[in-house]
Amino acid sequence: MKKIIFPIVSVVLVAAAIGYYMFNKPHRDVASERAIYTFEDQQLNQLLSKNFDSAFSVMGDQPIEVSGEIKSIEGDHNNLIVLNGVVVQLQDNQPAVLIGDHVTIKARLTGFDDLFMEAKLDQGTIQPKNE
């Protein structure tokens, strides 16, 4: 009898542990991922505005680095950075930036806003300048 109970109990415990981990698994951390594409702001905008479906099927949800000059800073916590044709929602605790600064931001591509004709990204982190 013991020979049967032990394996069954172990399987149940392992399954419960996996289930518990899956239920409480941490959110994705785009900041720790390597960017798979690098673009200038307008370049990214053009790609998405001209052929959204094929571009998004490749780059959607992926970490991307986008560079450009800050045109506007919006949102309750000033965490929405508007570049030329690109809007990025930043993660918390990012270095302070100003309108006119040239920045490189790593973020996840979430879509293309056809109200403002802008590429949209979130979970953005300001990348250190290569000097």
């Binding site: 409480n24 809007v87 929602q89 996840r108 806003d113 056809d114 109200l115 949209k120 979130d122």
Partner: peptide, 28 residues
């Protein structure tokens, strides 16, 4: 990060929201 434009003169209003930008408490 929902976008919206409202035209006061005509009353036209538009919204657009990326589905991937909805944040839940649990990642799963």
């Amino acid at each position: 990060s929902v976008s919206s434009v409202l035209d006061q003169a005509t009353g036209n209003i538009q919204f657009s929201a990326e589905i991937k930008s909805f944040v839940f408490e649990k990642a799963l």
